[in-house]
């Protein structure tokens, strides 16, 4: 399983390094979202700084959808999906490989978005550890749930519109828990980050388990 996972993750990351879609398209998109938020909330710093944790995670959530769509469009061409099944790749390995690739792409995006937030919104970091751990846990959870839904709608005509409808409600615990933990790590609010980090852990573990169990039956489609 792990060998297959690394194989798939390596393949996806190599394609990304050569095509540079994340850097060339998704990073400017995340930056654009940050600028649009500033337009929506006004030039005054106070509302922006208060809303920063939430805005960061909303930007991440939108980027996740693009990353998922991009990741599954790689196998969308005629016969490629069948070739992967015929190559004897373990479904659970395929799931984890996709998850790792999407999570690492999101990781790069999050670093860029965080830099953007510090520069554009003037945010001050209180605890790097909290911010970093919530990012890692949240990203793994989002990538796991996103991989499930990406695979579920891949090959459907209406996948672009179905994916947000299915994925965003399910991802809402990550948005809330991520925002709350960022509030304590960024604004230094009195909210304790620990319970929210546990929610992120639970979400990630839950969807990794669901993916390992259900990805097999899903590949028959």
């Amino acid at each position: 399983m792990w060998r297959d996972a690394l194989l798939i993750a390596g393949k996806d990351i190599r394609i990304e390094m050569r095509s540079k879609v994340v850097i060339n398209q998704m990073a400017p998109f995340a930056l654009l979202v940050l600028i649009l938020f500033a337009f929506a909330l006004g030039p005054d710093r106070t509302p922006l700084i208060n809303a920063t944790p939430g805005l960061f995670w909303v930007a991440v959530l939108f980027s996740t959808m693009f990353a998922i769509q991009r990741s599954f469009s790689l196998e969308a061409s005629e016969g490629l999906h069948d070739s992967i099944i015929l190559a004897g790749i373990d479904p659970a390995g395929f799931f984890i490989g996709k998850l790792l690739a999407i999570a690492s792409e999101l990781g790069v995006l999050e670093i860029l978005t965080a830099v953007g937030i510090i520069i554009l919104y003037g945010a001050h970091i209180v605890s790097v550890l909290v911010l970093l751990s919530s990012c890692v846990l949240g990203t793994i959870g989002l990538a796991a749930a996103g991989t499930m839904y990406g695979a579920l709608v891949s090959g459907m005509r209406l996948r672009e519109t179905l994916l947000p409808l299915l994925f965003l409600p399910v991802a809402s615990p990550v948005l809330i828990a991520g925002t709350r933990s960022w509030q304590s790590g960024l604004v230094g609010s009195h909210v304790s980050a620990a319970p929210w980090l546990w929610i992120l852990v639970a979400f990630a573990v839950l969807y990794i388990c669901v993916g390992i169990v259900l990805y097999g039956p899903m590949e028959d489609m």
């Binding site: 499930m148 579920l152 299915l166 409600p169 615990p173 929610i199 979400f203 669901v210 259900l214």
Partner: peptide, 14 residues
């Protein structure tokens, strides 16, 4: 079936 299960496991967490 998969969509129902993937959504359903999320309910306690939500």
């Amino acid at each position: 079936a998969i969509a129902a299960l993937v959504a359903f496991v999320d309910v306690p967490l939500i």
